[in-house]
Design a protein around this nucleic acid. Structure first.
Lengths: 186, 186
DNA sequence: AACGATACGGAGCACTGTTCCGCTTTGTCA
DNA sequence: TGACAAAGCGGAACAGTGCTCCGTATCGTT
C-alpha cells in the first residue's frame, strides 16, 4: 500500500469539488479553469493534478453532488418547518445538481457506457430520497399522493434542458409552478 | 429593393460554403475559423461578414449540402456504371453531409424549433432522392427491394453518431458492411 | 476615367487550456 | 524536537482560438 495522501491534498480536493459545483451552476460546465481555481482559492496546477481532464472533474463533482443531495434529504426533513418546505428546498439543490448532470453528457464524449452507469447510480441513490420526501409531504396532507419520484425527477430534469442563455426561459420558475400544482388543492 | 450584392461577394459566399463543408468533414464543426478561411483562401473578416455566428455558417452549409446531395442523386444515377454503384457514391456524399448535420445540434443551442424545421426539410428533400436510387438498384436486381429510404438514411445516420475521436470506431466501414448486406444475395 | 460604395484581409486584442518548475508544506525518523 | 525528502502547490509562460477594426483593394456606376 502506498503512503496515504497528504492532509492538504485531501482538503484541496474537497474544496475543489465544492468550488467547481458552485461555478458550474453559475457559469456552466464549460467555465474557465481559472474561474474554478479562483473560487477554490488554489492554483490551476492543483486542479490539473487532481483532475487531469475536464471530464474527470465533472464526473467527480457529479458523484459528490449526488451524495450531497442524497444526504440533504433527511436533514431537510428534520430541520424544515414542514415536509413540503423540505421538498421545495431539496428540489432547489436538485436543480443545481442537474446543471452538472446535463453538462456531463457534453463532457463525456461518446463514452455512453460510463454515462449510463452514472445515470443508474443517480437514480438508485436519489429516487428513494425523493420518495421519502414525497411520502412525508403526502402523509402531512400537503401534496397530492399520487406522484412518484421517478416522474417528478424526470419532469424537473426535462424542464432544465436547454436553458443555457435564453433569458426568456427560466426553468426554476416553471418548476415552482409545477410544485404549486403538486400541492393538494383544498 | 436595395442594390444587389457585388459579384465578388456572391463568389466568396459560394467558396466559403464549399470550403466550410470540406473542413467540417476533416476537422469537425468546431474547426477554427482560421482553418476555414485558409481553406477558402479568404480572410477571417470575410467569414464573419457573411456569417456573423458559427451557427449561421453551419446552418448555411447544412442547406447547401442538402441541396448538393439532392442534386447529386440523379447525376450519379446517369453517370455511374450501375445503380448500385451510384447508390454507394451517393451514400458517401450523404455521410459527409451528416457531419454537418450532427454538428448542427451542438451549434444551435436550445433552438429546437429551428432545428426541427431544418430536419423536416432534410427528410423531404433527400428521402425521394434516396428512394429513387434504391428503386433503380432494386429494379436492376442489384439489391433487395424491401428497404425503404427512411430506414436506410436513419440507420446510416445512427451509425455516424459519436465517432468523434475514437480510432477504434470507423463509421464508414460499418456502413460499407451494411450496404454489402443490402446487396441481393444470389 | 473617376469616384463613392462595398467588400476584403489580417494584425491585434482578449481569453482560454495546459505545461512546467521553483517554492512551500507535510510527514517521518532519528 | 529538528532536519530533510517527498509530495504538493501556485502561477508565469506558452500556444491556440474567437472576434473586432480599419487601411486597402475591388466593384459598379456615372
Amino acid at each position: 500500500m502506498p503512503p496515504r495522501k497528504r492532509a492538504d491534498a485531501v482538503r484541496n480536493e474537497q474544496t475543489l469539488l465544492a468550488a467547481a459545483a458552485e461555478v458550474f451552476v453559475r457559469s456552466g460546465v464549460d467555465a474557465p479553469i481559472r474561474e474554478i481555481a479562483a473560487e477554490a482559492g488554489v492554483g490551476m496546477g492543483t486542479i490539473y493534478r487532481h483532475f487531469p481532464t475536464r471530464s474527470d472533474l465533472v464526473v467527480a463533482v457529479y458523484r459528490h453532488q449526488v451524495e450531497a443531495c442524497a444526504e440533504a434529504g433527511p436533514v431537510l426533513l428534520s430541520t424544515e418547518d414542514s415536509p413540503a418546505a423540505a421538498l421545495r428546498k431539496w428540489i432547489d439543490l436538485f436543480v443545481d445538481f442537474l446543471v452538472t448532470k446535463h453538462g456531463l453528457a457534453g463532457a463525456m464524449q461518446s463514452d455512453s457506457s460510463g454515462f449510463a452507469s452514472l445515470h443508474a447510480y443517480f437514480l438508485d441513490r436519489l429516487g428513494p430520497v425523493c420518495g421519502s420526501l414525497l411520502d412525508a409531504a403526502a402523509a402531512a396532507g400537503e401534496i397530492r399522493a399520487d406522484v412518484r419520484p421517478f416522474e417528478l425527477m424526470r419532469g424537473i430534469g426535462n424542464l432544465c434542458i436547454g436553458r443555457d442563455d435564453d433569458p426568456r426561459y427560466d426553468a426554476r420558475r416553471l418548476i415552482s409552478l409545477l410544485l404549486d400544482g403538486l400541492a393538494r388543492q383544498q
